[in-house]
Computed example of a mutant assay.
Amino acid sequence: MRILAALATATAALTALITPAHADGPLGEAGGTLAMPLSEAVKVLPAAEETREGYQRTSFRHWTDADRDGCSTRAEVLKAEAFIAPLQGARCTLSDGEWFSPYDGVYVTSPSGLDIDHMVPLAEAWDSGAGQWSAKEREAYANDLGDERSLIAVTARSNRSKADQDPATWLPPHAAYRCQYLADWVAVKMRWQLTVDDAERQALTEGTQECLNEPVKVTFAR
């Protein structure tokens, strides 16, 4: 029954919001929610050519402490994703603990061995629409703790291998994680209403053909 209900919800959302092969405008409003099958979500991402003109990493202020609890965004992600909780010292200094890096299937026992990756890299976000955002919106994107798919703890090596690439040129070497990676990429792009170019959409379409067609559910951040 739950499967039928989920399919009905996805179908209703799809019928109400999508007629063309892809969306030409916003998918929804900030705070609104949307769920649809992964294969359809790939289709409705708005299309646009990418441009990196004017990009600087400093345009995205990140690793802030939005709730003023003494722990930066980086530390919050490390605490949330650890399957053996780290020790927390003064000024939210973390030590010990254990994590699993899904990009390369590696277990890590020291926070210093991990990077916090933006699922959709900052440069890619800029290319896909964030270059037109306000500084406040870019800061919110760079520190997005409102959706666990936005930020992920991975080995520094795998993060630097990915760099600012999209799925057209990079996929996680840990093959068992690729469907999850593609679904999360699509979810983050939907959440922030970011565009895709032709090569990216083709890679997403081809890459998700062998994935379970489960609903992608998002709450719009903007």
Rank of each mutant, 00 (worst) to 15 (best):
A135E: 15
G28V: 12
H62E: 05
E50T: 14
Q165M: 11
A156P: 02
L78A: 00
G31K: 04
T208V: 15
P111L: 01
D144A: 12
E137M: 13
D166C: 04
F60N: 09
Q56W: 01
D197R: 10
A16Y: 12
Y177C: 03
E137G: 13
A175H: 08
L87H: 00
C71V: 00
L14M: 14
S39H: 09
R138T: 13
E137T: 15
G89C: 03
V154Y: 05
T51P: 02
I3C: 11
I152G: 01
R91I: 00
Q180S: 14
W63D: 10
A30T: 08
L94D: 00
P26I: 14
G207K: 02
P167K: 07
D127Q: 12
Q56F: 05
G207E: 02
V216P: 06
G32H: 02
P215S: 12
T19Y: 13
A48G: 07
D198R: 14
E139G: 13
T205V: 08
L151M: 07
T9Q: 11
D104I: 05
V216I: 15
T33H: 12
Q193M: 08
A156E: 14
A187Q: 04
C71K: 04
L114E: 02
T155I: 11
V218M: 09
Y141K: 10
G105M: 04
T51E: 09
A75I: 00
D184N: 15
A142W: 04
V216Q: 06
H62A: 04
T11V: 14
G105H: 06
G129N: 09
A10Q: 10
M190H: 07
E214Y: 05
T33R: 13
P172R: 05
A13G: 07
I152E: 05
L4W: 12
G129S: 09
W170P: 04
R74G: 02
R201N: 11
T195M: 10
G207S: 10
L14S: 15
A183T: 01
